[in-house]
Design a protein around this nucleic acid. Structure first.
Length: 108
DNA sequence: CGGTTGACCAAGT
DNA sequence: GACTTGGCCAACC
């Protein structure tokens, strides 16, 4: 078969979006866990993909936070990200997710 | 193909 | 607790 025809056009970013969709409302995940679920260590590249995110708000990129429970970045400003999370029932105090580990979705 | 960039991470100070 | 440093990997030029 011709190399020009790929059955899966899944770029790294596309895989991120697909996996991220599985995160339910009211929970969060981290760049690191997301990368781990994809079988890679490119947590930095995950952040780059989130910044592009053409599928927002279908893909909940606002539910992705840093590994230590702090908020991380957001294309429209981190304050906006905090507001969206709060609207989903996730509280943020002093730049940190409240009860972070209990809210964390992992992809083993 | 090399250099730069970035919504990161972990360890050290 | 914060700030700094080195490392990490994919995308872009």
């Amino acid at each position: 078969m011709p190399a020009t025809h790929q059955l899966k056009e899944t770029s790294f970013a596309e895989r991120c979006y697909r996996l991220l969709r599985k995160v339910p409302k009211g929970k969060v995940t981290t760049y690191q866990e997301l990368a781990h679920g994809l079988g890679t260590k490119a947590y930095r590249a995950v952040g780059t993909a989130m910044n592009k995110n053409p599928y927002a708000p279908q893909v909940p990129c606002h539910r992705v936070v840093k590994s230590d429970g702090s908020i991380g970045g957001f294309a429209h400003g981190s304050q906006k990200k905090i507001a969206m999370l709060k609207a989903e029932g996730i509280e943020i105090k002093q730049g940190r997710i409240v009860d972070f580990e209990a809210r964390l979705k992992s992809f083993s």
